[in-house]
Nucleic acid binder design. Structure first.
Length: 258
DNA sequence: ACTTGTGGATAGAATTGGCG
DNA sequence: CGCCAATTCTATCCACAAGT
């Protein structure tokens, strides 16, 4: 007997699925059908039209992947120099790669060859190097921005996008994450930073993409940075009839119709 | 190519805290 | 006191860099 036989149940997965990313993927698939992106944008009150660089992306990690494509240390230094405006940044960047890596504290061994990915900088290690709270927080926000991945980003063109953060049962996340990091924030008297605030910082300040932010949830709640819409509204605004049954059923379930 | 060490992301359960 | 939201704790999985 397998577990389904023992339990006496064998539902289709769409009937019991409670994976947040799976619902976001269904919405992504639906948005990719003809005219649906336009319909959704209209519902959201976005007036800009779709340009030649249009694209819809799932688990959008542009900043991470662009960093990966950069060749050479000077472009990396220029990014840090211009976007991480802390005291003594010039002095830090004049050092060798391994010294820079040790200041920002990377996990594992510091590379002597190249400046390591800011997303891997370690709070507990660079804490002691930056006593000034403003500098410390700037580095944290910069580092976190490289790690966050909005669920769905619709690029209307290269400089204009819609960022969608989807939630099923969980709520908006915040940073820092670990106990040690939280203790550092507490002892410094700095408040935590919200996931959606970081998305805004990442899209607009770092990437320079003018962005509207949507928070896709079951029950509506307030947000300072994002427009909040329910799953029912989102699926209701687009055409689902061209999608297969499992997708239509999942959309109904999360919209509260099933 | 594989192993090791470090750290990050995330979910769900447990606990804590604010408020009527 | 009970309710609900926020926070903390724990477990799991995964990415990355270095060393062999």
């Amino acid at each position: 007997m397998n577990i389904r036989q023992i339990a006496g149940m064998s539902p289709n997965y769409y009937e019991i699925n409670r994976e947040e990313r799976n619902y976001a993927a269904i919405f992504f698939a639906a948005l990719s059908k003809p005219d649906n992106a336009e319909k959704f944008l209209k519902y959201c009150g976005v007036e800009s039209s779709i340009g030649p660089e249009f694209g819809i992306y799932f688990e959008y990690a542009y900043l991470r992947d662009m960093w990966n494509h950069i060749i050479g240390e000077e472009p990396r230094k220029n990014i840090i120099r211009n976007k991480l405006q802390i005291n003594n940044i010039e002095e830090i960047l004049s050092k060798t790669p391994i010294e820079i890596n040790k200041i920002f504290g990377v996990g594992g061994k510091a590379s002597s060859e190249f400046i390591q990915y800011p997303g891997k900088w370690a709070i507990v290690k660079y804490d002691r190097h930056f006593p000034d709270n403003d500098d410390f927080l700037k580095i944290c926000r910069f580092k976190w921005a490289f790690n966050i991945k909005p669920d769905i980003v619709i690029h209307l063109d290269k400089d204009r996008s819609i960022c969608i953060e989807a939630k099923y049962e969980s709520r908006e996340g915040s940073y820092p994450a670990t106990n040690k990091e939280k203790e550092i924030f507490r002892s410094r008297g700095i408040g935590y930073v919200g996931q959606m605030e970081l998305q805004k910082y990442m899209m607009e300040e770092l990437l320079g993409v003018k962005t509207d932010f949507m928070f896709l949830v079951f029950k509506k709640e307030k947000s300072a940075t994002h427009k909040v819409i329910s799953w029912a509204e989102a699926f209701g605004a687009i055409e689902m009839k061209d999608l297969p049954k499992f997708a239509i059923e999942m959309a109904k379930i999360i919209s509260g119709e099933a």
